[in-house]
Computed example of a mutant assay.
Amino acid sequence: MTANKKKHKALKIARNIFLIFFAVCVAAAGAITLRGYYMYTSALEQLPVRRAAGEVRAKEGFTPLSELPDTYLDAVIAAEDHRFYEHGGVDYIAIGRAVYNDIRTMSFAEGGSTITQQLAKNLYFTQEKELTRKVAEVFMAWNLEHSFSKEEILELYVNSIYYGSGCYSIGDASRTYFHKEPSDMTDYECTMLAGVPNAPSVYDPSVNPDLASQRQRQVVGLMVKYAGLSQDKAELLTCGVN
């Protein structure tokens, strides 16, 4: 066999291997998407989104968005999902960045979930990082965006996310950590609580005050970057001055 024929045969084998690998990946992705869709529809049959929202609003200590400081809401969006008002439930830019970083580090360290996806997870699914559940979460996020306004989604989110120390709403967190209603929180307290849900067991102010303060400074930095907070105001906030 000549060198050219050997090269041609090797290229043909490589092409066939690639096509088989590609077909397997497509089939696997299709199967995961289908399982995720079934998980989504099953969850929706058991608890329609309007009823799920009603259960959150009926909780003792539910705090309407109108009673929350603007600083807190700006901090939450800057820290968790700065394109919240621009996407339709899924931030494809954030997902692309997360996939790249996860492949680079060979881990699931970065998720790219939006506030809407996190709300979907809080209302319906587990915290486990599993592909089928992530797909179901995406379908549910699209449903939530179709069913509610952005303000309603944000209101449901801050009243269902975990803040550590047994607190599952901003009202509970404010009363537990600061002994005051959410509407009375200072700017420093607002920025501190906005950072806790990222890792409640790590940033719980009553357990790890130093780490909570470190996270608060990160949130303030994100507000400078995404929410138009001035550097002078940021420096005061990181020192605990309103």
Score class of each variant (00 low, 15 high):
4 N>R: 15
6 K>N: 13
6 K>R: 14
8 H>N: 12
10 A>S: 12
11 L>M: 10
12 K>M: 13
15 R>H: 05
17 I>R: 13
18 F>P: 00
19 L>F: 11
20 I>L: 13
26 V>P: 03
27 A>P: 00
29 A>R: 00
29 A>Q: 03
31 A>I: 12
31 A>R: 10
35 R>C: 09
36 G>W: 03
37 Y>G: 09
38 Y>S: 11
40 Y>L: 03
40 Y>S: 08
43 A>M: 04
43 A>L: 12
44 L>N: 14
45 E>H: 08
45 E>D: 14
46 Q>M: 06
46 Q>C: 00
47 L>T: 12
51 R>I: 11
57 R>P: 01
59 K>C: 08
61 G>C: 06
62 F>A: 09
64 P>H: 06
65 L>I: 15
67 E>A: 14
70 D>G: 11
71 T>C: 08
74 D>T: 01
75 A>D: 13
75 A>E: 13
76 V>C: 04
85 Y>G: 00
89 G>W: 02
93 I>H: 02
94 A>Q: 07
98 A>I: 05
103 I>E: 07
104 R>H: 09
105 T>S: 15
106 M>S: 13
109 A>L: 06
109 A>F: 00
111 G>D: 12
112 G>M: 09
113 S>W: 02
116 T>L: 00
116 T>S: 03
121 K>F: 00
122 N>L: 10
130 E>I: 13
137 E>Y: 02
141 A>H: 01
143 N>S: 10
145 E>V: 02
145 E>D: 13
153 I>H: 04
155 E>R: 08
156 L>V: 07
156 L>A: 04
159 N>F: 01
162 Y>M: 05
164 G>H: 12
165 S>H: 03
167 C>M: 07
170 I>K: 14
171 G>F: 05
173 A>Q: 12
184 D>A: 15
184 D>E: 15
189 E>M: 07
190 C>W: 09
191 T>L: 15
191 T>F: 06
191 T>C: 15
193 L>Y: 10
194 A>D: 10
196 V>W: 04
198 N>C: 00
201 S>T: 15
203 Y>D: 05
203 Y>Q: 05
204 D>C: 10
209 P>A: 01
214 Q>C: 01
222 L>T: 03
225 K>M: 14
226 Y>G: 08
226 Y>R: 10
226 Y>S: 07
230 S>D: 11
231 Q>K: 15
233 K>R: 14
234 A>D: 06
235 E>R: 14
236 L>E: 15
237 L>D: 14
240 G>T: 12
241 V>L: 14
241 V>H: 11
